[in-house]
Nucleic acid binder design. Sequence first.
DNA 1: CCTATTTTCTAACTAAAATTAGATAGAAAT
DNA 2: ATTTCTATCTAATTTTAGTTAGAAAATAGG
Lengths: 210, 210
Amino acid sequence: MNEASPVLRKSAATRQRVLDAAARIFRERGYAATTLGDIAEAAGLRTASLYYHFESKEELVEEVLRIGTTLVSDAVRRAVEDLPAEADFRTRLTVAIATHLDALLRLTDYTSADIRIIGHVPPEVRAKVWPLREAYGEFWQELLRSGRANGAIRAGADLGLLRVLILGTLNYASEWYKPGLKPVGAIAAEATAMVLDGILAPSAMHRQPA
Amino acid sequence: MNEASPVLRKSAATRQRVLDAAARIFRERGYAATTLGDIAEAAGLRTASLYYHFESKEELVEEVLRIGTTLVSDAVRRAVEDLPAEADFRTRLTVAIATHLDALLRLTDYTSADIRIIGHVPPEVRAKVWPLREAYGEFWQELLRSGRANGAIRAGADLGLLRVLILGTLNYASEWYKPGLKPVGAIAAEATAMVLDGILAPSAMHRQPA
DNA sequence: CCTATTTTCTAACTAAAATTAGATAGAAAT
DNA sequence: ATTTCTATCTAATTTTAGTTAGAAAATAGG
């Protein structure tokens, strides 16, 4: 059978079905409320057969989390890096927000499962996938740093705090978003407008209450 | 025993201890990962004794959620209503954000438990407490409506979308906040600045990329 | 075809956790 | 003191879900 062969093992397809089902159901119901039976049924096999592909429920969810973080991280990095070198901060942040939300809300159950359950998986699992998340956070931090270096971001801001506030704004959408109500692009536009310019009317006086 | 008597039942104190313990542990570990044994131990009694005070785990968590929503809702309503009648939108939103974050991060485990687990409790439980949450959401919606009526909020904005974006920004803090790192007031100030004015430096050109 | 390997299945097993039953101690009232 | 509720306990029950063991299909090569 030649494990290193270019031919896919037949089990690869099953493993993929299991992961897809797991991502979807974890996202819908949360970690603890999802049983291996639920996942097996959705993937079209028996509960015990899952153990041929994964050592445990924890290993399965770990893989889902890993994929979820990787998908959004790769997509956002690529989208930003593909911008022309002279693109300004406003453009770069706009693209980063749009791509992050697209991965989270439209593209993949893995990322929404990741965001929704990361705080509810066993600590050992969280610890294992943490470095990946930190690296993605560091990408955003660097994006903001470059924005402040350019003078685009107001000087007094705590960038670490801004980062978690912005990502919170985006990530919390996985709690309320329902497909079909509003295109993801429109949500991204409104979020970008708020983060960059705030919600006030441009004419309004600066700082002072009336 | 005279149930309507002004004298507190001795069980009221125990019930309160159980609720306090439940709120704290639900917040820390999530709904499904919290056992009645954990709660009982923290409250200083035996698992079975919980059933004297609550019919089931679901009824217990429902009460925690109800209290959590009520506490933050009442605090924010009161703080905003206590402002002078002529207070402008900027002031009202600043106070609403500060009070919401204070309830969520500093005051009470009930509210943080509520926010963290509402998406992970059994659907029947969520349905029962939903009206309370909707009412609180409606308060924010009305706050934003008044802001737009005043011309304070930019005209094109989708207020429903703005509302969930703002509350998402605030609520997601329950996922990353750790006491001691930064005073809650400083977090509120940064969040308010972002929501109202955005993160860009005031001098920067409007709209156009460089 | 025959055989070895991969994949999935059926059937236990185990452990944890929610819940129930019924006994007991404590407080308050007659 | 005796009786009556209130509150908590110990001990069992039940259910659910993760996991393991080992037998059977299915698949691929020779």
